[in-house]
Computed example of a mutant assay.
Amino acid sequence: MNDKERRGIGLCLAFKGANYGALLQSFATQYELEKRGIYTEILDYTRGKTNKYIFSPEAFVFLAVKKLYLTFDTKFGQKVVPDELHVINKKGRNEIADDFRHRRLHNIVQLNGYDALVERAKTYNAVMVGSDQLWPPDVSFSNYLSLMFAPEGVRRISYATSTGVEKYPWFVYRQARKFLNKIDYLSVREQKGYEIIKKITGRDAKIVCDPTYLISKEEWEKLIPNEQVTKKGYVFGFFLGCNAKMKALVRKYADLHNLRVVCILSNEVSEDDTIYADEILTGQTPEDFINLIRNAECVFTDSFHAFTFSVINEKEVYVSYRVKKGVRPRNQRIDNIVAKFGVQNRLVKDPDNYVFDENPIDYGRVTEIVKNFSKESAEFLDSATKGC
């Protein structure tokens, strides 16, 4: 297919699950590209029986180590059987996610098998991966999120892709170098991602903002109008992991300020949120998630995107590392973003001994940083997608 017959960009996004952040960053990515007049399609790729991994000696080592870790965790880890409320909640969240994809995303193309993926890629000017944690070490052995499926002549773009880890193990370097060197426009979301790529390839990846930051507070309010989900006068707790000490801190803050605690029940863990929350919400949409942040007096979270929308909406916020059984810590994204905005004092590392900062966040300063970061990131995106 010649250049004149190609059009638009094929998007490799983390859009399939029920995570609010993943859904909203997928929406923001497609929205920002189409705002630039670019036709997009979201690739709903199913592997079939082929090409999960690029097989090499390193791949066998990586798979063996990964299998050993998962086997150990499954055998010796404490299993939690969810109660009926959590089972119903998880089912409801999946249905809500499906509805959001139907309402807010479009041009989702189902591709069954690697051959279909390659053939579809031939129709695009470019393919793009991003954002979220789509480049863990094992992406080195994948043909999909590495964009190795793209034929010659099709531009490869990474926008704000997160590695989610502090470093890659040495035995993935050779394969990682191959795919990273083929990315035409290379950007990452965090400093650690930059350092990993620099060490492996010598290339300087551009550090850009999460796509949700590309949309201003005012523009988000036009896209998702501000509506009251529950009565005001509350602290919003949104936790994806298990952190009873952090939840106790939320309760302490609320009692000190004579506020209620409102939370959305997690669909990823099965903790008893009645230990700290006055109102436990289920069945909330991604739009509700944003509006609960907008109308809160303060937000406590272990979620990158709950922190993100707190900053966009200039809310008082405290963030902690996520604690989740069977999941390795991926704290560098939180470390990165609080350092970027100069709000390290709002990162709670020791809930037992944390002292609340009663001085409001200086959003005159923070919002200016966000605007400049967004502007630089938009310029990268403009350059990467020019002519698509």
Score class of each variant (00 low, 15 high):
127 V>H: 05
249 L>H: 08
299 V>E: 01
238 F>I: 12
114 Y>A: 07
154 V>Q: 07
337 I>R: 05
316 E>A: 13
121 A>F: 01
299 V>N: 07
73 D>C: 12
79 K>V: 14
216 S>R: 10
250 V>C: 12
126 A>K: 07
336 N>G: 02
72 F>S: 12
96 I>C: 06
3 D>W: 11
72 F>E: 09
388 C>K: 09
10 G>H: 08
115 D>I: 10
57 P>K: 10
13 L>M: 13
57 P>H: 10
241 G>H: 02
25 Q>A: 04
163 T>C: 00
102 H>C: 10
34 E>T: 13
177 R>E: 03
188 V>K: 01
93 R>C: 10
196 I>H: 00
181 N>T: 08
306 A>D: 03
261 V>Y: 05
345 N>L: 01
99 D>Q: 14
138 D>V: 02
86 H>Q: 09
358 E>N: 12
374 S>D: 08
215 I>Y: 02
88 I>C: 01
285 T>V: 01
258 N>R: 11
212 T>K: 02
348 V>L: 04
108 I>G: 09
352 D>P: 04
333 R>I: 07
43 L>D: 02
267 N>V: 08
257 H>K: 15
221 E>C: 08
308 T>K: 08
344 Q>D: 14
356 F>H: 05
14 A>S: 13
107 N>Y: 03
337 I>G: 04
60 F>C: 11
176 A>L: 02
175 Q>T: 03
138 D>S: 07
83 D>P: 09
76 F>N: 12
387 G>W: 03
